[in-house]
């Protein structure tokens, strides 16, 4: 079956929500089982005492990327039909920096905070409530942000196009970089004093 299945109308859209629930369960289970329901475990990546976030995140990214490239190459999936977030240069960078600030204060990102909520962490509940407020605030103040939000749209451009590289070469370099980071992380972890949490 040539994917993506729902956009190709191989699976009817009525199944959408059931599939969403099942995929979400897989997502939540893996995040929690990896330790992402604990903010102090997550923050270990930034202080060098526990690189679980770096390992899980980059392993997941290169696994999914490789799967997509392989399926596309074999003709089992049309990768050109996959949704690509449009690149609004300033807004994407500003948003990332604001999120990084929030990360350092809150110790969660939205997905991991839901995992914390599910196992009873009050800090995760406060983070999630904050998320709601933040999005409400942004929406209410939108006229103020609309300029930045809508400026410099480069469309659904891919990183290798931006760099003028072939897709597979970039993907290969990304895997090499990830493996390099895994070795670097193991090295740093050995040097840094353990933190009990």
């Amino acid at each position: 079956m040539t994917g993506p299945l729902i956009p190709m109308e191989i699976i009817p859209e009525a199944w959408n929500n059931v599939i969403a629930l099942l995929l979400g369960m897989g997502f939540g289970f893996v995040l929690e089982a990896s330790g992402f329901s604990s903010s102090r475990k997550i923050m270990g990546t930034f202080f060098g005492y526990d690189f679980v976030v770096l390992r899980v995140f980059f392993t997941a990214a290169i696994t999914a990327m490789s799967g997509i490239i392989y399926f596309d190459f074999m003709g089992w999936m049309d990768a050109s039909m996959l949704y690509i977030n449009p690149y609004y240069v300033t807004s994407a960078i500003a948003g990332g920096v604001i999120m990084g600030f929030g990360f350092a204060l809150g110790g969660f990102c939205p997905g991991t905070s839901f995992c914390g909520v599910a196992i009873g962490k009050f800090d995760a509940m406060f983070f999630s409530a904050g998320l709601f407020l933040g999005i409400l605030l942004f929406s209410e103040m939108y006229p103020l942000f609309a300029g930045i939000y809508n400026s410099e749209n480069l469309g659904d451009i891919k990183i290798y196009e931006m760099l003028g590289m072939k897709r597979n070469l970039f993907a290969f370099l990304l895997i090499v970089a990830a493996v390099g980071m895994f070795y670097g992380a193991a090295f740093v972890e050995k040097k840094v004093t353990k933190v009990e949490y």
């Binding site: 990332g96 604001i98 999120m99 600030f101 990360f103 204060l105 110790g107 800090d123 406060f126 933040g134």
Partner: peptide, 14 residues
């Protein structure tokens, strides 16, 4: 945590 969540909420919209 609440402040961090709020910032994450704003940033994720940008």
């Amino acid at each position: 945590a609440a402040a961090g969540g709020m910032l994450f909420g704003i940033g994720s919209q940008f």
